[in-house]
Design a protein around this nucleic acid. Structure first.
Lengths: 325, 325
DNA sequence: TTGTAAGCGTTATCAA
DNA sequence: TTGATAACGCTTACAA
């Protein structure tokens, strides 16, 4: 493959001039410019982007850290990031972690090694302290509630959203309320958990461990939940469900077992995924694509200008009342 | 940031020795090895991976070209690729194209520029000829039926799958059959279309244009389809549906309108996505994650060994009979 | 407006 | 076992 030196020779100019032409810099005579493009054409030349990266000290690639790629929640966030990245001619390197700390650290190391100019972390398990050490290597934006931690972030206030949903259920007369959660660790889940305990305590109701359903991510998990619910000696009359996928599983599999929604079991879930509409599931819409978009903007602005526009942004949710309560 | 030269100086060895230690090469005295690691520790050193890429002429990054990231079909293929890439310490650069030719070309150009060592194309719109020109720049694997084209590929035989489904409907007594499709162009869609025309002709039934529903990708599209179906003066009694998502939309929205499945309308769809089970949709399981995995393996094998194990692999599908027919 | 040359930070060959 | 040194291919002062 031809390199810039060969182009220079072919066009009868210096490599600096070739570089100028290639990058659209001013102050190059029309004829030299033409000569360069002709040589490029003739020798079928293309830049070696790794040399560019090395010389410039940046790659215009952003790393995206997320646990799963085929989960609607993360896929939607990723799509949001991707669309915005495309607009700014940035590329995305995806790090699927399956919530494995090693994989997260690998992503952080890739930023140290200058493979990526910045990192958007959609969900993590590594300690804040560990992640914090990498702030010196490039901008990190979290799509989670970082609370008192000193990080850039764009997030949905799950505490508020969960509280809102709980209040709604309580107002509708429910006192026996359980919930489903993706995983017990994790910022979002902890926020939801806190909202649950706080709100129930406020109305003097004792939270029950056996009404908390863990590892609820996919539709199949809804099947498991409804069967566990059915086998419960004392059943909650309402369930706050981590996602519309899981809620759909509960509703659809519940229907097969004769469970009446909302008479036997009321449901509020999250996302406002298209499936929630025909199933008439009351849900809290999460602006996932928007979160991705804003996360990219935050990191992009920092990279391009070197300063921080806003440190943290909380996205508001929309309550969509249907008939599952 | 410290570089390899500073490490060499600090450890009192040459850069070559540092490089050897860093890459685990043999023939380095124990004490020098230790001295190097100490210097690395002390100066908090990390490799600049762009320099490595430049010197080696490869990046261990594979580009993945797909139209949408938040569509279950492509997200599942991507997840399959990702898991296998992880195992081999490769990284993935995603190119979301929205079926824009420009974006596809950009991905191909990135391979020319040596940003990626190879490309997995999940679905494309660019001409074969255009894509073919980039074969000289690195391996390209298609996850589509490339037929007579000379490309590496791993694909699902949609012609066969569609034919199988059609035969099943015919055998069940259906003669008025329509279908839904993602988009009219595209290898998969064309294969399905061909199967439709061929099979119907064989039984002497005239295909009808108004029974073909275009742009069916998401659940919302199922809503549109069932409403269009209802407004048809002459309705097909059965529909072959592009994906379980769309089929779920048809079934769920149809139910609200009082459409009886399968009495009024029989349905066979594709994917065997978890949603098809509780809805009892007869479906054809597509091995999407496997396709991704195999695509990665193909490209990986070529990159590592320089030769082609197998050029093309056709994946078989599984017919899952439920009660939507 | 143009060219020279010094980086950018590795890897890998070759000689010792 | 080790070290010098030449690639790898581009960008960008600086000088002219």
């Amino acid at each position: 493959m031809a390199n810039i030196r060969e182009i220079a020779k072919e066009a009868g100019v210096s490599v600096a001039t070739v570089s100028r032409v290639l990058n659209g810099h001013p102050y190059v005579k029309e004829e030299k410019r033409n000569a360069v493009w002709e040589a490029v054409e003739k020798l079928n030349y293309t830049k070696n982007i790794n040399a560019v990266h090395l010389a410039k000290g940046k790659t215009s690639i952003i790393g995206v850290v997320l646990p799963y790629l085929n989960h609607p929640y993360f896929a939607t966030v990723l799509e949001g990031i991707s669309k915005e990245a495309l607009r700014h001619r940035y590329h995305l390197l995806v790090f699927q972690t399956n919530y494995d700390v090693e994989k997260e650290l690998e992503a952080l190391e890739m930023m140290r090694m200058k493979q990526v100019d910045g990192l958007i972390i959609c969900s993590h398990v590594a300690d804040w302290g560990v992640i914090g050490e990498y702030k010196q290597d490039g901008p990190i934006v979290l799509c989670e509630d970082v609370r008192d931690q000193d990080f850039l972030s764009v997030y949905i206030d799950h505490y508020e959203a969960f509280t809102k949903a709980l209040r709604y259920l309580i107002q509708k007369g429910h006192r026996h309320i359980g919930y489903c959660i993706g995983r017990t660790t994790g910022a979002n889940s902890k926020a939801r958990q806190a909202a649950y305990y706080d709100t129930l305590r406020q109305i003097g109701v004792e939270p029950r461990k056996e009404w908390i359903f863990d590892r609820c991510l996919y539709m199949e998990d809804g099947k498991r939940v409804i069967h566990e619910w059915m086998s419960l000696p004392e059943k909650p009359s309402a369930l706050l469900v981590s996602s519309d996928q899981v809620a759909a599983g509960i509703v659809l599999w519940g229907k097969k077992e004769g469970v009446k929604i909302p008479a036997d079991l009321a449901i509020v879930s999250f996302d406002n995924h298209p499936i929630s509409e025909p199933l008439q599931i009351t849900t809290i819409e999460l602006p996932l694509a928007l979160m991705g978009k804003k996360a990219f903007r935050l990191i992009y602005h920092y990279i391009e200008t070197g300063n921080i526009a806003r440190k943290t942004e909380k996205l508001s949710v929309r309550f969509i009342e249907r008939s599952s309560v």
